[in-house]
Write a protein that binds this DNA or RNA. Sequence first.
DNA 1: GTCTATAATTGGATAGAC
DNA 2: GTCTATCCAATTATAGAC
Lengths: 234, 234
Amino acid sequence: MPKTKALAASASKESPARKRAKPAVRSASAVNRRLRQIEDKRSAILGAALGLFSRFGLHGTSIDQVAARADVSKSNLLYYFANKEELYVNVLRDLLALWLEPLRGFSAEQDPAEAIGDYIRRKLVVSRDRPDASRLFCLEMIQGAPLLRDELDRELRTLVEKKSEVIRAWIDAGKLAPVDPHHLIFALWAMTQHYADFGVQVQALSGHTLEDEAFFERAVENVQRIVLQGIVPR
Amino acid sequence: MPKTKALAASASKESPARKRAKPAVRSASAVNRRLRQIEDKRSAILGAALGLFSRFGLHGTSIDQVAARADVSKSNLLYYFANKEELYVNVLRDLLALWLEPLRGFSAEQDPAEAIGDYIRRKLVVSRDRPDASRLFCLEMIQGAPLLRDELDRELRTLVEKKSEVIRAWIDAGKLAPVDPHHLIFALWAMTQHYADFGVQVQALSGHTLEDEAFFERAVENVQRIVLQGIVPR
DNA sequence: GTCTATAATTGGATAGAC
DNA sequence: GTCTATCCAATTATAGAC
């Protein structure tokens, strides 16, 4: 079985950028420049890591590759992140926020059709602009989300419960057909992320990518139509 | 970058079970028994491999683990499959058929609502009974489907085109709202596979699995309702 | 902070006896 | 066909100079 050794205790080593500069002779601005430089390097590494992890997974990616892509040496990378798994965890952490963002918009005062239509568009924008994030998230889920499990149970769960209440309120007000909120949310996630996660298949079958403006709009319209109106003629 | 060395030339080594028994002293039934034994072992290995590959991916799984799970020795496994990638390819090949199966059902004479409702149920059955297959397929897609790309372009593509025609015929006959066939197919795939691929998340948020009979039925009904009727009250 | 070794380990694959 | 014993390559991670 794949090792999970340092996973739990992964917050152990402080990253250098977190350490405050000790009183030195340098001017404040020089220190700030330095700090920014370091932070930039960190995010360069994180960005490179996301790109590779999201395609090849944790085990399919070597530190070397990440380092090369981030244009730093391998040992330099290991100076910033104590080990591969710490790097991976840090990439994942940044992800969840981005992933949850669009859902927060929902509120009972809105018109449901509009709110949900909007949500679909926003999620498709994420699929278009951050397909790597979507894919890594998916990868992690497939593997049983060993690293996100806790967050899933806490943050995501409470958020989903809250939004389910909103959906129920809409239904009670007769503004929405009686649909199970959970299943509706699953459906929305699935349909929108599909364009990122199965991008290759979408491309192979339709000949287009979300990058293609016209195709993107068609995707938005069709998903909206299916979810809102359904496909049986009225 | 991850190596792709022997991928193309992977059909090189014949698997032992494919070789016909040479004229021997054994009785026909003895030979048959032997062949079946071998075939059984092969599928034991393939089954074990599917289970592990679908969770941890190609690189996250070692031959050792597969061998252990299939209850054979590592070198014995390598007798049946020349190398890890050949094993992986064989697992994938078996998959595609299973994956395409449900779609073949579609034909223009059927009532669209019924045909599509049926399709949703059949796909959800697959998600329930063969989640590992669904997950591995998803993994492969995320990674750009290096091994399925050809099949995607051929088999899947022509099948999808054919079924898109059926959908278009339904629309022209006024039996279906004007929806882009491709996007509809994507939506159906996405919503149904989601229950397998994101099973952990579904479980974490809803507290249920498709194994749960009542939950399964609710999933079927809700997906059907969303796709067919939509969620805006009529 | 960054680099050049290099240690340490894992894991894929082969050789050859039985 | 199956096993044991290796070989060998790829990687992670560390040590220590600059």
